[in-house]
């Protein structure tokens, strides 16, 4: 036995599993999206792209994902910076603070928001008590509810991917900038931000992708009237049972994700190398 054979034996089960149980299903879905009763067809795509309802679903998905990504980046960057710069004990606690929600089921976290944002929930009530909202004010079943819930779900991804880059920045660069007369905020802008950019970009792409493809939180917080693409896919699969149409929608989502992931792959490769 040579080293090569040994390693081939070790890697083969994984390669087979991923190929057969991961990539073949995705291929099957791609095929199904163009399968008609008589050969190949694009009718499912036509149906989606010519229906104003679905176009508005698509637009809402992109718009909400962008908003969610921006908010996550705006909170995630300072959070990661602070985490990288505090003492080790506090950092441990902050990491637990980020990881605990991350490792908790999305369903459970969304449930928490349902309670908080619901008609008699704590947040609308506080807003009403403060006189900031009218009596029949509601957050549940609005796009705002989706954004709030999704930001909480995805913020950990953003924070950790920026943290990974920031901890690797040479601390002396900041000190050097200060000795050269740069203020604290100036250093943050001219030294830390550019160096953290790979993390911010990678985190943003990840958050955008995850946001565009989630349906559990949008379904539960937005309700059935405010649909996003992934929720519409879920509906086509489980309620209308129109699988080819579901596949076509998934392909549209897939294409959008690939458009984003290709630069992401190049970016991470550069960051590794």
């Amino acid at each position: 036995m040579t080293d090569r054979t040994e390693n081939l034996v070790l890697v083969l089960p994984g390669l087979l599993l991923l190929a057969l149980a991961f990539f073949v299903p995705i291929a099957r879905m791609l095929v199904l999206s163009v399968e008609g009763e008589a050969g190949l067809t694009l009718t499912h795509f036509e149906r989606f792209l010519s229906d104003p309802f679905y176009l508005s679903v698509l637009w809402r998905t992109v718009r909400l994902s962008l908003i969610i990504t921006l908010i996550c980046a705006a909170i995630g960057f300072p959070m990661a910076y602070i985490m990288a710069h505090v003492g080790p004990r506090l950092r441990l606690w902050l990491i637990v603070l980020v990881i605990l929600p991350l490792m908790t089921s999305v369903v459970i976290r969304t449930f928490g928001w349902m309670v908080l944002l619901g008609r008699s929930g704590l947040i609308p009530e506080i807003l009403r008590d403060l006189g900031l909202a009218e009596r029949n004010f509601a957050i549940m079943r609005t796009e705002a509810a989706i954004v709030i819930g999704m930001v909480q779900v995805l913020l950990p991804f953003m924070t950790l991917s920026i943290l990974g880059v920031i901890t690797r920045i040479d601390r002396r660069l900041e000190e050097a900038a200060r000795t050269m007369g740069c203020s604290f905020l100036g250093t943050l802008r001219t030294v830390v931000l550019p160096l953290a950019m790979p993390g911010i970009v990678a985190g943003s792409l990840l958050v955008f992708t995850l946001s565009a493809s989630s349906f559990v939180t949008p379904n539960l917080l937005g309700g059935s009237r405010i649909q996003v693409l992934a929720a519409s896919i879920y509906r086509s699969v489980t309620q209308t049972l129109d699988w080819p149409f579901a596949a076509a929608q998934a392909v549209i989502l897939f294409a959008g994700v690939l458009l984003i992931l290709i630069p992401y792959a190049q970016l991470t490769r550069r960051a590794d190398g």
Binding site: I26, S213, A250, Y264
Partner: peptide, 19 residues
């Protein structure tokens, strides 16, 4: 081996169900 991390689960889920 890392690709399932970045491909949205929903796309995989629907493919797996259909296959």
């Amino acid at each position: 081996f890392l690709s399932p991390l970045v491909l949205p689960t929903i796309i995989y889920a629907i493919g797996m169900l259909m296959l």
